[in-house]
């Protein structure tokens, strides 16, 4: 799963619109840049440039009015800001989660075993405590 393509789903619809708007805006910016670069001072060129600026402002206005309730972690913004691929962030995050999950599972199982062994030992040493220890075992196992 990469970000090169957006699946045409309902969920992604506002995002697709936004990407299209952004594409237009970037095109306009290129055009404006070209206009400026090639600006000869004629009335026609001037009018064309004004028109393009107005388009840009119009597109900016449209962009800002979009409602996009997608939560963006600041770390991702920093990633993109630094010119890195946000998909790497995504991948690393998934990996960290997987590792944490595995470790937690291991610890839960080991401590369960320790509980059982310690409980058994205590029961053998202090038979009076058997009930209590059994109670603890039941309450703490799945």
């Amino acid at each position: 799963m990469t970000t090169t393509q957006l699946e045409n789903t309902v969920e992604n619809k506002p995002l697709i619109e936004t990407t299209e708007q952004l594409q237009r805006l970037i095109d306009d910016l290129i055009n404006v840049g070209a206009g400026i670069h090639d600006y000869v001072g004629t009335q026609q060129a001037y009018q064309a440039l004004i028109h393009r600026f107005n388009n840009i402002i119009l597109e900016l206005s449209t962009l800002s009015s979009n409602n996009l309730p997608y939560p963006i972690p600041i770390d991702v913004i920093n990633y993109i800001e630094d010119g890195r691929n946000p998909d790497i962030y995504t991948r690393e995050f998934i990996e960290v989660n997987a590792k944490s999950n595995a470790r937690l599972k291991g610890r839960m199982q080991n401590f369960g075993k320790l509980r059982d062994i310690l409980g058994d030992k205590l029961v053998s040493e202090f038979p009076d405590l058997k009930e209590t220890i059994e109670g603890i075992k039941t309450r703490t196992s799945n």
């Binding site: 799963m1 970000t3 090169t4 957006l6 699946e7 969920e11 992604n12 995002l15 936004t18 990407t19 952004l22 594409q23 805006l25 970037i26 910016l29 996009l68 997608y70 939560p71 963006i72 991702v76 913004i77 993109i80 800001e81 946000p86 998909d87 995504t90």
Partner: peptide, 15 residues
């Protein structure tokens, strides 16, 4: 805006 564009594209997975 190119960066914003990238971000928007990434946003599909944000949830």
């Amino acid at each position: 805006f190119l960066k914003i564009y990238t971000l928007v594209k990434w946003s599909s997975k944000s949830k």
